[in-house]
């Protein structure tokens, strides 16, 4: 039987997915997300509580998450210490390691897909692009990840990649936590590659077998790597151990890149300072949330979310959702309604 959160008064987030937009019945992306999340249970992976039918589609019911990592990084009022960064990175890696241990690559790792619970726990969400891997006969598309978080093998058009692509993106998040801005931001794939190679040096054939055979290989002016220390001068938040781990996570050749599980065993996590306990992690202020929400007006097709205090949802009946029992408060990015904000406004 399903334990509906409704009786508990727990807050839930609902992602509505319309059926039949492309004339192919229930959205494959949504099905994939449901299927994978049913199998993945981990404190650093968002919990799918239930799926409800709704009149025009299906509704995915998630535990409610207060904010996301992107807002933490962007909020200038939030001060991140070395211990805070370590705590966030550890949660990022723990979520990914769990996926990889179950042969799932997420393929859309970026700060706004890591959601932050009120408990301070950081959880990986948005499994719409995630796929099981390990069957070499099934080629993958390289059109995954937001551009800035794409690993070099993807930018070079690889169709047979593994969990290393997630680790690369996690490395980019690590750097972003240190820099407080995206590391490899550029307008085009070549622009991103250029930034990557400027920072890390151009890849050499000796280190990366099959480099030249990549479908979209472009030759760059050979450059030596810059010392990471020159890019991350703040020793307090980025001690040597941090930079050593970072360099392994953003190793250009996928075969030599560290795995998420090994990264968690890196010295960085064992030496002082210890990661901040999650309940003491700094959170973006409510003002910060609102600004971010208002600023991000981009809409994406396919997903529509609302959050509602479960107690108000009018019971488990799917009809309740469509009949306007769920109160809409405030449009957030991707049509996300924050019931918390709503309550505050009311």
């Amino acid at each position: 039987m399903y334990a509906l959160p409704l009786q508990t008064g727990e807050l839930v987030a609902i992602k509505k997915i319309r059926v039949g937009e492309k004339g192919e019945g229930v959205n494959v992306t949504a099905l994939r997300e449901v299927k994978l999340l049913r199998e993945l249970h981990h404190p650093n992976i968002v919990r799918l509580l239930d799926v409800w039918p709704s009149r025009r589609g299906i509704a995915l019911v998630f535990e409610y998450m207060e904010t996301d990592l992107e807002r933490v990084i962007r909020d200038r009022a939030v001060l991140l210490t070395g211990a805070d960064v370590k705590a966030y990175l550890r949660m990022v890696l723990a979520g990914l390691a769990h996926c990889h241990a179950r042969w799932v690559v997420h393929r859309d790792v970026k700060p706004d897909n890591f959601l932050l619970a009120s408990s301070g726990a950081l959880k990986l969400a948005d499994f719409g692009l995630a796929r099981p891997y390990g069957s070499p006969d099934r080629p993958f598309t390289h059109q995954v990840f937001a551009r800035w978080y794409r690993a070099p093998e993807l930018l070079y058009g690889s169709t047979c990649y593994g969990p290393g692509v997630d680790v690369w993106a996690a490395g980019c998040i690590f750097a972003e936590l240190l820099l407080r801005r995206p590391w490899f931001s550029a307008e085009s794939d070549v622009g991103v590659l250029n930034k990557i190679f400027t920072a890390l040096g151009t890849p050499r054939d000796a280190n990366w077998g099959g480099l030249r055979a990549m479908p979209a290989f472009v030759e760059f002016q050979p450059t030596p790597p810059a010392p990471l220390r020159s890019l991350f001068p703040n020793v307090a938040v980025a001690p040597d151990d941090a930079l050593d781990l970072l360099s392994r996570m953003v190793c250009l050749a996928p075969a030599q890149r560290i795995s998420a599980a090994d990264a968690l065993r890196h010295r960085y996590f064992r030496v002082d300072p210890a990661p901040t306990p999650q309940e003491r992690l700094p959170k973006p202020g409510r003002a910060g949330v609102r600004v971010a929400a208002a600023a991000a007006s981009a809409k994406r097709p396919g997903g529509e979310r609302e959050a509602t205090p479960a107690a108000e949802a009018g019971g488990p009946a799917p009809a309740g959702m469509d009949s306007g029992d769920v109160r809409f408060l405030k449009k957030r990015r991707l049509q996300m309604d924050a019931a918390l904000d709503d309550a505050a406004d009311a």
């Binding site: 059926v19 229930v26 799926v51 039918p53």
Partner: peptide, 21 residues
């Protein structure tokens, strides 16, 4: 036939309570 297929697809998903792993 397509309409019926889509209806049946959802009926099956609901019956399974989306337990599709």
């Amino acid at each position: 036939a397509r309409e019926r297929l889509f209806l049946a697809e959802r009926a099956v998903l609901y019956a399974l309570r989306f337990d599709v792993a």
